[in-house]
């Protein structure tokens, strides 16, 4: 598969950019990092984009990140220790002018405490066009979804491997931007072996929605990402980048690894039963157009 990214407009809207790129046959890479985790985190976000990420997901750190594993817990504590606040990070995002759409991932108490409208407005003002709040399931999320929609922010909902079919369909109907498919039952973090649930969830949800379906949690290597995107529209990769950043990686190194993921998913074969629309459109473009090499 190719990455005809040059055919895509310059919009920074998460929903339209992901949909256009998906429709052009490009596999999607959503790259996560925790806002404020290191002084140069904004450079890291640029590097992830330069390496070929289609969107950047910035974590607004929370004191009690219950769906995150040790790496992102660590990053959250580092960020909080450095005095990171939602408002301060949104301000940094606004000034960063990141090349691709930016989504925010955070826990509900930070949204609730700010107020739905105020938080959605602050996100929109910072140019953030997507929001993932993993501890806010379908039943509790209606007021936040309405506030986000009114501000032009796509409220992304999650589906888990254990989510029953009808419920998954309803979540897909209510999600905006993309559907975040949890690749496994567990917290964020790297896994040596890709869970079998991660391999099937993409095509399962592809039959329920025409939103892009991105699989996250436990997608740790370019090889795993390639495997996942043979059935899904894209991947969300977080802990692999965050661990490197904690360990002192340079922006150049981060860009190279992002490019490794990019070229791996560019080579993914579409699964035979991947029903999500548009793959055929993207046959243009020849060999992977990831412009940054694979390091």
């Amino acid at each position: 598969m190719s990455s005809p990214v040059s055919q895509v407009g310059t919009s920074h809207d998460l929903a339209s950019v992901l949909r256009e790129r998906r429709d052009l046959g490009r596999k999607l890479l959503v790259a996560y990092l925790t806002g404020g985790m290191v002084p140069g985190w904004v450079e890291m976000a640029h590097a992830l984009a330069a390496g070929g990420a289609d969107a950047i997901e910035v974590g607004l750190p929370f004191s009690d990140p219950m769906i995150d594993g040790p790496v992102i817990q660590r990053a959250s504590l580092l960020a909080l220790g450095r005095g990171a606040t939602p408002a301060g990070l949104l301000e940094e995002i606004a000034q960063a002018r990141i090349e691709v759409p930016v989504a925010v991932m955070t826990y509900y108490n930070l949204v609730f405490r700010a107020g739905h409208e105020r938080m959605a407005g602050a996100m929109a003002a910072a140019g953030v066009t997507g929001a993932i709040v993993p501890d806010l399931p379908l039943e509790e999320s209606a007021p936040w979804r309405a506030a986000a929609a009114a501000a032009g922010v796509s409220a992304v909902l999650l589906v888990a491997p254990v989510t029953p079919e009808e419920r998954a369909a309803e979540i897909c109907r209510q999600s905006r931007g993309f559907v975040y498919a949890a690749g496994l039952m567990g917290v964020t973090g790297e896994r040596e072996v890709l869970a079998s649930s991660a391999q099937v969830v993409g095509s399962r949800l592809g039959r329920l929605t025409d939103l892009p379906v991105c699989v996250g949690i436990g997608v740790s290597t370019p090889e795993q990402a390639r495997s996942v995107t043979s059935g899904a529209d894209g991947v969300v990769v977080g802990s692999a980048f965050v661990r490197m950043i904690i360990d002192g990686a340079t922006p150049e190194e981060i860009e190279r690894v992002s490019a490794d993921f990019r070229s791996a998913i560019d080579e993914a074969d579409d699964g035979a039963d991947d029903g999500a629309g548009g793959q055929e459109i993207g046959e243009a473009g020849g060999a992977g157009s990831a412009p940054y090499g694979d390091g």
């Binding site: 769906i67 399931p137 888990a160 029953p164």
Partner: peptide, 21 residues
């Protein structure tokens, strides 16, 4: 039905735990 006592309570868990709850 949603688990509220007055305005307090509810079920604010990741989707992975909703079926178990």
């Amino acid at each position: 039905q949603a688990g509220y006592f007055g305005s307090f309570g509810g079920r604010f868990v990741p989707e992975a735990l909703v079926p178990a709850c």
